[in-house]
Design a protein around this nucleic acid. Structure first.
Length: 214
DNA sequence: GACCAGGCACATC
DNA sequence: GATGTGCATGGT
């Protein structure tokens, strides 16, 4: 059997769904906040928390840096795990202040490998959150792997079902051109596919765009 | 009323 | 090193 190329999958998904316009946010800082809030959480709940922050006029690095953690926790309550996430946001803001003076522009000039290492050193930021920040807030070509991605690739026999994050990411990074626009769209399309087909107990694979692959 | 959602850190074996 | 558990709200 001919080995399926990720590029082929991308083409099929893009042809079916078109551009996904990720990340849904007004600016890069909002992406970072959303990336932490969405950890194991439905996006609809994250939106409620983001709206609370916006209404309070606090969706701003300097203001959140000043805001007491308990008040932050109350505002992000709809996102769930609010005490944990308030702490994680604070941990990021402390790092952001100490290393970059709360200035996103300063992050852009840092090499992606260095930036990734720094983000992973922040308590509460793991591989997926780090890559989401790199790709969607800083436009760096670091592929985001989530559970949807793993499930889809596993189902199509492109990875072992127990493959870890680094293995799956390596597959994308090696096969594809390191292009942030491509990585951005591809990951968003995989999420779209998972939500529209793979998670529904419906006809699913019969009309799934990837039907012929595998 | 279960079960799940765009994870992560930590305990325990 | 693998496996299990806490964190918590809101939608289906």
């Amino acid at each position: 059997m001919k080995k399926v190329k990720l590029e082929e999958i991308y083409s099929k998904l893009y042809a079916s769904f078109g551009p996904q316009h990720w990340w849904p946010a007004e600016n890069s800082f909002e992406v970072i906040v959303g990336a932490i809030l969405t950890q194991n959480t439905a996006w609809t709940n994250v939106e409620k928390a983001i709206t609370n922050l916006k209404k309070a006029g606090l969706l701003d690095a300097h203001k959140l840096y000043q805001l007491p953690q308990k008040k932050l926790a109350a505002l992000i309550r709809p996102a769930g795990f609010y005490n944990i996430k308030a702490r994680r946001l604070k941990e990021f803001l402390n790092f952001f202040s100490a290393h970059y003076r709360l200035n996103l522009e300063k992050m852009l000039s840092v090499p992606v490998s260095t930036m990734r290492r720094q983000l992973l050193a922040v308590h509460g930021i793991g591989a997926e959150t780090a890559d989401s920040i790199l790709l969607y807030a800083l436009a760096k070509p670091s592929f985001v792997v989530d559970n949807y991605t793993k499930r889809i690739l596993s189902r199509h026999k492109l990875i072992q079902s127990d493959a870890d994050y680094a293995q799956v990411q390596a597959l994308f990074m090696q096969q594809l051109k390191k292009n942030s626009k491509l990585f951005n769209e591809f990951h968003a399309l995989l999420v779209r596919l998972a939500k529209d087909f793979c998670l529904k107990n419906k006809p699913r694979c019969a009309i799934c765009p990837l039907k012929k692959i595998s």
